[in-house]
Design a protein around this nucleic acid. Sequence first.
DNA 1: ATCAGTTTGAGTCAAATTGACTATAACTAA
DNA 2: TTAGTTATAGTCAATTTGACTCAAACTGAT
Lengths: 258, 258
Amino acid sequence: MTITNRGRPQTGRPIAAKRVITVYTTSANVAERQSAPPSLAISTVIFALRPSESSGRPTLWLPLVRRIREPFKGLWALPGGPLTHAESLQDAASRNLRDTTGLAPSYLEQLYAFGGMHRSPTQRVVSIVYWALVQPTEAALADESENVRWFRADKLGSLAFDHNGIVDYALWRLRNKLAYGSIAYHFLGEYFTLAQVREVYEAVLDTQLDPANFRRQIKSTPEIEETGEYLQGGKHRPPRLYRFTGRPGLDPDNRSTS
Amino acid sequence: MTITNRGRPQTGRPIAAKRVITVYTTSANVAERQSAPPSLAISTVIFALRPSESSGRPTLWLPLVRRIREPFKGLWALPGGPLTHAESLQDAASRNLRDTTGLAPSYLEQLYAFGGMHRSPTQRVVSIVYWALVQPTEAALADESENVRWFRADKLGSLAFDHNGIVDYALWRLRNKLAYGSIAYHFLGEYFTLAQVREVYEAVLDTQLDPANFRRQIKSTPEIEETGEYLQGGKHRPPRLYRFTGRPGLDPDNRSTS
DNA sequence: ATCAGTTTGAGTCAAATTGACTATAACTAA
DNA sequence: TTAGTTATAGTCAATTTGACTCAAACTGAT
């Protein structure tokens, strides 16, 4: 599927974000750092659509947690935690996501394993990062507190560790996957209008799309099923409701269980 | 870019390969296994084109190493090893590849982090797997020995651990990336003919492609540069040589160094 | 009840792309 | 010199795309 825009220019490849990060050093010296085994952590980039404060149109948001200890104490960071022994990588991501934000994602996929040597000033840590999509009904129920808050994906400040770069990469992957095909529907509920699908594309790609051409292209994909129902209660002509019948891709780490 | 075939059907999504694997148990019990920290390993799937023994046409091959200790002693496995402390993930993959096969890849990208709980019968091990492409000149120099051998990618036996599934996934990613755009050239040298590019596509996708239409599509991509030179010494009309001018994608774990 | 305003949804049309195919050029081997 | 083979250009109908028009269906204000 090819979706064309008629608005602002698109960001193509991964954005090489150069940021200045203040490094808080601790008492750990280089020798200690090199002898300790690299620790394994799981983090998650969670995307949801929420109405923009200004325009009211749906935009991309993600929840972050405030760090309550060094390093980077006080800064915002991706939700994450260590890998425990009785769970698979994906289960760990899923559990962590639930523990920190109360969210249950409708889509969860591995993003990348980040293992650069100076990601954390105190020790070598390898993070296996997942990315998730949650539906708006879910997202509205998410716990928010002093230490958990939603941010617009295009208005994050300086995050802890290399998390700005991770979010940039996750955004690139999201846009890629969207252009590729069947990911947009995981932002929506079971039933949706074609205009809602278009709003997902417009929010993620940050462009305006021609409604008529967009609907023609979406309707030509076999994974979209027309229901007999209409969305009532709107201000204008009631739009028909559709359903997504495709299956999300398998986790290559879990092939034997399928 | 869209490349159409006129031959055998294509494999679309990841192949869910179910295989029976004999598990060699050791003296380590469940308690020991759960208390030990998950160990981190790096493995690599290395692809190269080599002439088929039967037809002589280029086909996909990959080098495997024989396991010399339990578990899976005697079986073939992907080259790999532990992650040492002074190197990034990609450096570890690159070094490991050189150590075990003597190869220097022209392309190296992270494939996936595999961390299922029962991948190894003795301990929990998380493998960060890379995939690499090497040029035929390089591949010809690769060390081969009793314990390192090249196999046709479509004729592997039963491999150690979950390595059959990993190779299947790597193949899927390779075919995907090929259809997407600018990966084929890393199988070739600096100069190449359009027929050689077509042979790469035919070998990887396992189809026959129309030479005329293929050349039209390849020539329409901006990353291909026509050189003034021709490949001499062939049996027929000397084909023009081309050059690839695109850059491979950045490693998201190394953005700050670019 | 009627009309203005807005969104849904179908359709038109020229331009661009694709897939199947033909034809000629340029070389080698016999 | 000729037959065989590959390289390369080009033709043409079918399909897809991008820009656009227009009727249908609803709400809210007059």
